[in-house]
Amino acid sequence: MSPPLVEVSAISRSYSMRSGMFGRATAVHAVDGVSLTIPKGETLGLVGESGSGKSTTGRIVLGLEPPDRGEVRFDGKPMAAPGTPAWRAQRARMQMIFQDPLGALDRRLPVATQIREPLDIHGIGTPAMRDERVRELLRAVELTPAHGARYPGALSGGQRQRIVLARALATNPDFLVCDEPVSALDVSIQAQVVNLLCDLQAQLSLTLLFISHDLRVVRQISNIVAVMYLGRIVEIGSADDLFARPEHPYTQALVSASPAPGRRSAGRIVLAGDPPNPAARPQGCAFHPRCPRAIARCASEVPALSTLSGDRQVACHLVTGAQARDAA
């Protein structure tokens, strides 16, 4: 395996939230002890339901906000303090793409100007070289200079997301965080953007953190997949293997809940209970109130993420407990 480009060690982040006008401030544990390693040139997919802490993890990895605890290392070095020249140099090597391409673009500027902007900001190349680079980037995302002359409003959703991608690639980054980049797109357009991302990743040897709630898209694009539930990673493993043989009861429910043409819903695991609430995280295994296999121990003891076999890690008393029994 190639050496890691991004190493995340036990990061945590909580926010304090006031419920109601006179309510007491409660802590929302958005991210709690998350560790991840992304090898150079590979894609790590992060899946989980709304509020599970995916975007917060992405922002911390990019250095957009500091973790309360833990550390992020990029290419072997800790993230520099925000605002310093070392930080800017690191930041130029990482870029991000969000779900809403229209929100990420300025409606009043032609899109080519916006692709060029990072080159102007970082003072990369002569003006003529920058123009050439913009043409090259437009070609890379399968658009033409004519598209570049348009305003965001005159492009389709898929085309806008390509512009955002072109701009993210302008500084030749090594690392890209994509937060739900295709969730707002129709299936046929989504496939165009997913194919494009796969191609560019291979051509440019990009390292990707790909955040999505869509298991299919994540599997298509990722080498490794991590599943988050209420701020923690509950299972991590290789993309093909994880969805084919999920071990954690939550991953099993997620895979089972993903509808597939050609399969009727017989045998589906339907979880009882409400979606998880990060402001009221249950004790013990946070999944226990909804877990169909919970045992007494699950309500009090937090299961640690432990290696099951090969590259699979699971945080569940039943799975790793059984293994411990086998080993004994």
Partner: peptide, 17 residues
């Protein structure tokens, strides 16, 4: 249907429209 990424079996390039 070709544009829908499969959840199991081998990964194939999506047939985007």
């Amino acid at each position: 249907i070709g544009a829908l990424p499969p959840l199991d079996g081998p990964r194939r390039r999506l047939t985007a429209i």
